[in-house]
Amino acid sequence: MNSNPSGPLAELRGASKRFGHSIALDGMDLSLRGGELTALLGPNGAGKSTAIGLLLGLLRADSGRVTLFGRSPHELAARRQIGLMLQSADLPGASKVRELLELTRSYYAEPLVMAECIALAGLDGLLERRYARLSGGQQRRVQFALAICGRPRLLFLDEPTTGLDIEARQGLWRAIRQLLAEGCSILLTTHYLEEAEALADRVVVLNHGRIIASGTVQEVRAHVSQRRIRCVSTLVPEQVIGWPEVRQASLDAGRLEIIADTAESVVRRLFAEDSSLSELEIERAGLAEAFLSLTREAA
């Protein structure tokens, strides 16, 4: 139905927002394209909630442009294309799951049938339960069901897996991948960098209201050239931490783990000081290290 299917589904253009004297968002550009999962990362107070608030029409930008499906996010017709799961929203505890679902489905033109919502979100047997009497993980699944029940073309997931155990988290990841495969676009915020690493097509890192890095997971990781070195050694972290180029050293499951600016010189010295060293592994540091180093630089 798009007149231009390759255009962005939602867009911020030079969007700024201040609250009193503090600048929450400082000229942010962001466009969300079809079929992609974009992970919005950043420390607390970086401006993630503000960016989402603008896209959802909860906040008004002081300057810049905000569009959702080419319209203002304040238009109902634009918001009928989205689904959302807000971390901070506590649903009414005395309502039954079925009531919450039926009500939210009624807002949309072509909602999923109940059975599909139940299957996708894993709500079997919970429909007649009151929301307040569900476990934390079950409540998260209900929130996810409400987010997807309208067959959204763009889904906002704000910290969707906080408080879930590993199994429940992977169940949600599966559902997210299925939605992506069906062409749904997703904007995800998360504190779990491995989640962004596992799911994101694109990563946007915010700090102090500005984008400090964006690109694919590989591209953002490449912002840091650091290497992670792992080995079994008689050396302890305290000996290694003072070496040139070593940023971090720790013991992880009996292995020495070192984050270093370059691997070669550190590895040479490792062999020199411990000839019995074994099981050496070297890899590029992950998104977590990239994220830490990016936000530290910008601070």
């Binding site: 909860l58 918001r79 989205i82 807000l86 901070s88 929203a89 939210t104 949309y108 309208g150």
Partner: peptide, 12 residues
């Protein structure tokens, strides 16, 4: 509890 914000962002 943020429910008002959720309702306003939803196409209610």
């Amino acid at each position: 509890r943020g429910l008002l914000a959720l309702k306003r962002a939803l196409p209610m």
